[in-house]
Structure formats: C-alpha cells, structure tokens
Amino acid sequence: MRFHRVDLTEPTADSRLAELLEKERCEALVHAAFFKAPGVEREYMHELEVIGSLHVMNACAAAGVGRLVVISTAQTYGPHADNPGFLTEAHPLRPHAEAYSIQDRAELEGLLRVFSERHRGMNVVVLKPCGVMGPNADSLLVQHLSGAAVTTVMGFDPLMQFLHEEDLLHALQLALIQDVRGSFNLAGEGVLPLSTLLRLAGKRSVPVPHPMLYRLAYLPWLSRTGEVPAAFYDHLRFGWVVDTARAKTLLGFEPTYSTKEAWLSFVVSRRMRSYR
C-alpha cells in the first residue's frame, strides 16, 4: 500500500491526480474528501468539496478509472414538512436553504449525474447514508446527540434513522464489487422517534420552541462560539427518512445493525469513553 498526497484545492490537482492514477493503474476510486461538519470557511469548503470533486471526476475520466464511488449524504434530500414518509432516490434534492455544506453536496450530486451520463463506461456510484452512528462516527448530528442533555424542538418528535459505521464500510465494499451505477440510500432497519432514542440512552431532552431556538442558535454560530448552525435544527424537526430498497436489490446491501442497535452502539461507546 502506498500513500500519496494531493491537495484538491490546487488549480492543477486534476492532472496531478490523473498522473498518479495512471501510474498506479488504478481501477476504482473512492472519493471521501469531505468535511464531517460545517464550521470551516464557506468558500474553502466549496473549493474543496465541489471544485475538488470536479478535479477528481476529471482525473478519473482522463486516467480511464473504471469506477468512482462518492460518499454523499441523505441530508441532501433536506428536512421538510412535506417530505413523504420514505424518500427514494428518485425524489428531488431539496437541501436546507441555509445549510450551505449540504447544498454543496447536492450540487456535487447533480454534477456527478451529468458526469455519469457523459461517461457511460465508468461506474459512478453515489452512497447516501442517513445519520451515521458508531464508536468512531463524527458529524454535526453525532456532536449534537452526544451530550447528556439534548436540545430538541418543542412539540416535534421526528422519526430518526441511523446507519452503523461498519455497515457503511460494508456498503462501500459492495459498491466496489457490484456492477451498479447511480445513487443508493443507506440506512439501518427501522425508524425510531427522537424521544424514544433519548429515553433509550437515558439522555435528557431540553425542548425549546422553534422560533426561539433558531434565534438562539444563530448568533453564537455567526460569532463562531456555538457548535450548531440554526439550519441544523430542522433536521430534528422534520423527518428525512430514506427508502433503502434500491441498495438492497441492486447492491445486495443488508445492514447488520438496525437503527436502534447503531444508536446503542454509539451511546455505549461514548459512555465507555467518559470512564477512561
């Protein structure tokens, strides 16, 4: 195994990457160079996640790589009051109007769709996991849910759906083997209301009415003292549950952990960490 370092924000990252891919006779590429949570400067994030991904796509095409797997997120469907109970891959992407990192990811998915149509010889696969949970998972959702008391939106109890980190790896493995292309939603079996999840974990819920919550979250986020952007709370207000039928039939994906088990695995591992 060899390790190469390429900065995707460089103007000529594409030709450098293409050179490397050709030299290594690369057959498949997994693109996962994304930030785990917003908080980085917006322009830089866009530069890396969208423009950097364009470099990756072009490099793959130039080097004749047969397969490109990109890890996006189910959040690109957006948390909306008018979402159907289960979102399929055919559902339009409506990322939250203020969640710019998710908007970037949705833009990237659009670019990948166009790219895939232009390069029919390449298997372009987009994995869209819902909230990833597990001992090593880290995301805005994970950070928000790891405290002993969790801020929730008063009067709302959305259905949540989680995927265990090992199942994500498993899906990644399948995406590298199976002859598939397109987007695949990934999630563990079952859904649970947020209140039930908190009760299972012995966490306290701190409900705040939503007009107040958004205002409270906005200023600290702007001044970079708060962790959570106001837009995030809509993910705790409306459901964004995905349908995984496509991953099951085409990819052969069978999650080992259910939503509940993935959540408990996360909770238990966090508990262990606090004893250390």
Binding site: G85, F86, L159, G190, V191, P193, T196, R199, V241, K260
Partner: peptide, 11 residues
C-alpha cells in the same frame, strides 16, 4: 420500555 414504531411512526 420505549416501544418500536412502524415506518410511519405508529406506536
């Protein structure tokens, strides 16, 4: 014990 819900949240 928190019960399981079905896909649309029926408890």
């Amino acid at each position: 014990e928190p019960a399981a819900v079905d896909g649309f949240g029926l408890d």
